[in-house]
Structures are given as structure tokens and as C-alpha cells.
């Protein structure tokens, strides 16, 4: 059955729902002709940003909204993520590689995810604005097909 990729799709912001969110975006990417050899890198970016939202957006549960589309002339596949959680721009996080040069026993374990997100996507933007009548975190992520 052909998946419908138009409009916003709603998922629970839970780890159990992560694979459904990932598969929805990856299926859309294939539908919009993202090259097969680029799909693992795209998956990495999806996992890091979606898991970040799942872990940090809501204290008491909520939803993630996903929209997919492409810019054919620019050869870019886009997805947008919206949530009604705490206002938070994950793109403001500092890349740990710029500050952490320590040996393994002192090396911090966090922060790589957002560094991967920044490296994976060519167009990244964040806004905290109205979404379906309520203020929401809105992330737009563009990936070269």
C-alpha cells in the first residue's frame, strides 16, 4: 500500500514509537528518491534528533508531529518536527569535540548526537512559534538526496 506522505503525521513521543517515526521518514526519503547509499547517514540524523526530542521535550508525555517533502530543483529532502514540549533549541548545544580533548577515562559520554545532526543536515532551522493553535518547538531539517 502506498504510504500517504502529505500533511502532518502524529506519533507519541516515546522510545517505543521511535522505530515507527524513523521508518516513516526513511520510507518518505525513499519515495522522494534519496539515494540508497545516503540512507544510513540520514537515519543517523533522524535517530539523534528524534531521540533528543523523545528524551527531553516532555515531562509527562506528549506527541511529535512529522511532515516530509522535498525541494526537487535543489535536490534536498526535508522533514519537519514539531512538539509542544519545553521550549528548547537543540541546535544551540556545543559540539563536545571542540571542548573535550581528554583521555578516555575522563571523556564525557554525551553531546555527540547533536554534533552528528549538525554534520548530517545541510539546512537546519529552529523556531518556537504557533503550530495548530499552540506554541511549539519547530525544527526543519534538510538532507541532500
Amino acid at each position: 500500500m502506498q504510504e500517504n506522505f502529505s500533511g502532518w503525521k502524529k506519533f507519541p513521543a516515546t522510545e517505543d514509537a521511535y522505530e515507527n517515526i524513523r521508518d516513516f521518514i526513511i520510507d518518505a526519503a525513499k519515495n522522494f528518491n534519496v539515494q540508497k547509499e545516503n540512507l544510513l547517514r540520514l537515519e543517523l540524523g533522524i535517530e539523534e534528533i528524534v531521540i533528543n526530542i523523545i528524551h527531553y521535550a516532555y515531562k509527562d508525555g506528549g506527541d511529535i508531529f512529522v511532515k516530509v517533502y522535498d525541494d526537487e530543483p535543489q535536490n534536498i529532502f526535508y522533514f519537519e518536527l514539531a512538539d509542544y514540549g519545553t521550549p528548547f533549541n537543540p541546535l544551540d548545544k556545543i559540539d563536545p569535540r571542540s571542548i573535550d580533548k581528554s583521555e578516555i577515562q575522563d571523556r564525557k559520554l554525551g553531546g555527540f548526537g547533536i554534533a552528528f545532526v549538525k554534520k548530517t543536515f545541510v539546512n537546519l532551522s529552529y523556531a518556537y512559534e504557533d503550530f495548530q493553535g499552540q506554541k511549539a518547538n519547530l525544527l526543519t531539517l534538510g538532507f541532500i538526496k
Binding site: L40, E43, L44, E47, E48, I51, I104, Q105, R107, L109, G110, F112, G113, F116
Partner: peptide
């Protein structure tokens, strides 16, 4: 075939314990 930062953290924790 694939690892994310979640896998890297597992490698780092194992590396710390080995050290």
C-alpha cells in the same frame, strides 16, 4: 553496518572499564 551515538556511548563505557 550502523551505529549511532547510543552505540558510541557503549564503546566508551567499555573502553573506560578496560582502562
Amino acid at each position: 553496518e550502523y551505529t549511532s551515538s547510543a552505540g558510541l556511548r557503549a564503546l566508551l563505557r567499555t573502553g573506560k572499564k578496560a582502562k
